[in-house]
Design a protein around this nucleic acid. Structure first.
Length: 131
RNA sequence: CAGUCAAACUGGUCUAUCGCUUUGCGAACGAGUAAAGAGGAAAGUCCGGACAGCGAAGAGUAGCAUACUUCCUAACAGGAAGGAGGCUUCAUUUGGUUGAAGUUUACAGCAAGUGCAACAGAAAAUAUACAGCAAAUUCUUUUUCGGAAGAACUGCAAUAGGUGCAAUGGUGUGGUAAGAGCACACCAGCAAAAUUGGUGACAGUUUUGGCUAGGUAAACCUUAUGCGCUGCAAGACCAAGUAAACCAGCAGGAUAUUUAUAUCAUUAAGUUACUCGCUUAAGCUGGAGGGUAGGUUGCUUGACCUUGUGAGUGAUCGCAAGGCUAGAUAAAUGAUAGACACAUUGAGUUAGCGAUAACUCAGCGUACAGAAUCCGGCUUAUAGGUUUGACUAUUUU
RNA sequence: UGGCCCAUGGUGUAACUGGCAACACGUCUGUUUUUGGUACAGAAGAGUCUAGGUUCGAGCCCUAGUGGGCCAA
């Protein structure tokens, strides 16, 4: 299965975003904060994970740098989301996920790679516990 | 030859793998395939427009902006060319006297009104007081009997009484008791008129006038000119459901009559900041349907770009040929690896008397910065490269 | 996207129409006390967010920037 991240796999709708942020399931793996929840079912849309990637304006001032960070996170997530994807598919639900960068400095690829992998492992563990 | 500053232009290239957005093909929002995909400032949001809506679509006031002239432009607080002033340098002169070059100026009005000016200074705008000068007159003292000194009264008008950022034209002569543009000469400067040149700002010349008019408008203000307000989160459309808002029917205060119209009054609502003005309504029943959330559209062919050519000192404009060049929306234009290019640091080799240059290897680095309706400007940021100008230092021949 | 406001000792605020940057709390030193607090006496600590301009002279006026906050939807 190819590592893709299309428009449909992004978390966009206002209500869904509110749903994700109002739930209490979250953790911080500095400099990344993760919120996640299972979304209420939607018949038309069957993508297993909906992801939102963000970066606060307070920490990083320049728009160029924010763009850069978001692109890095997106790239790493895209390359490593296979196991999570298949896991969710088996449980036949829809996961809403938000990944937000809360650091102050501009990271490089290696750092982000390490962090995101850690995050995904931790997320899997948490989800399997809930089941 | 190097460095610094200023201005203008430019703003890395290629390959592989894995991806993203839009559009075309495709029955298909899937798979596949082809094409395209961020700047000179996309930034700040400081001006000006296009485009769109609002007001029963009017008037006045307030408010805001601009400020030498002419031109350019869709428009501008932008630009071009010029005028005037300031500053610097050089030359020149008895002398900032004259000229040249460069640079710079929010450059209408304080000879409309009002206000302000700490400290210092007699005085900060008003002419008076203080200090000062002085003949005559009166008084006092003294005397060498000529006069002298002091006080009062009176006259004088400055600005050199030396403070201040700033001091009421300057020099000289006459004049007088003492003085004063009081008078005169020369110089500087002002106003008015005429005239010459220029589209004009303005410049030159002549005559007359009164002797002099202080600073500050980035103080209030005055004058002239311009501006209606709000902004693509504007606005339009889509399916579902329903309101204090809309439409229809019935009812409705006083007066008049032609009995459904007019006028008047009360209250309320809507009308861009305000005022006037304008519009509408008041209770009951029924109908039809807005906003908000979501989606679609607005959305990219345009005061467009490239090349050539003509007009103009120039900003700019005309003509011809060719081209289509982002359109996202919790927001695409990316990531990894490698090679080259450029800059810099260190080491080495070669050339050269030398400053240095060329080559090889290694390390580190490659600016500012990311479209959000679209254009024209301005401002600010910017590694390296190229060009031009100014300044500084130094080497070699 | 559009609009509005603010920045002054360590902290919170003043400074009127441009003319010596003030106050409180805090800090430090001394006195009082067996010691600490309280009280009393005194001292230090800014050049007003940054850079230009106007002015004889800017915290104040003008221009540009930096940082922070607020509002509409």
């Amino acid at each position: 299965m190819a590592n893709t991240l299309k428009k449909i796999e992004r978390l966009k709708h206002d209500n869904q975003i509110k749903e994700v942020f109002s739930s209490n399931t979250r953790f911080i793996e500095y400099p990344i904060r993760v919120n996640y929840t299972f979304l209420s079912s939607n018949m038309e849309d069957t993508t297993p994970i909906k992801v939102l990637i963000g970066c606060s304006k307070r920490g990083v001032k320049k728009a160029v740098h924010r763009n850069k960070i978001k692109r890095l996170i997106r790239e790493v997530y895209r390359c490593n989301n296979n196991t999570l994807n298949s896991f969710i598919k088996e449980s036949n639900a829809q996961l809403g996920l938000s990944i937000i960068f809360i650091g102050n400095e501009i990271p490089d690829f290696e750092y982000i790679n390490k962090k995101i992998n850690k995050v995904l492992v931790r997320l899997l563990k948490n989800l399997s516990k809930d089941d």
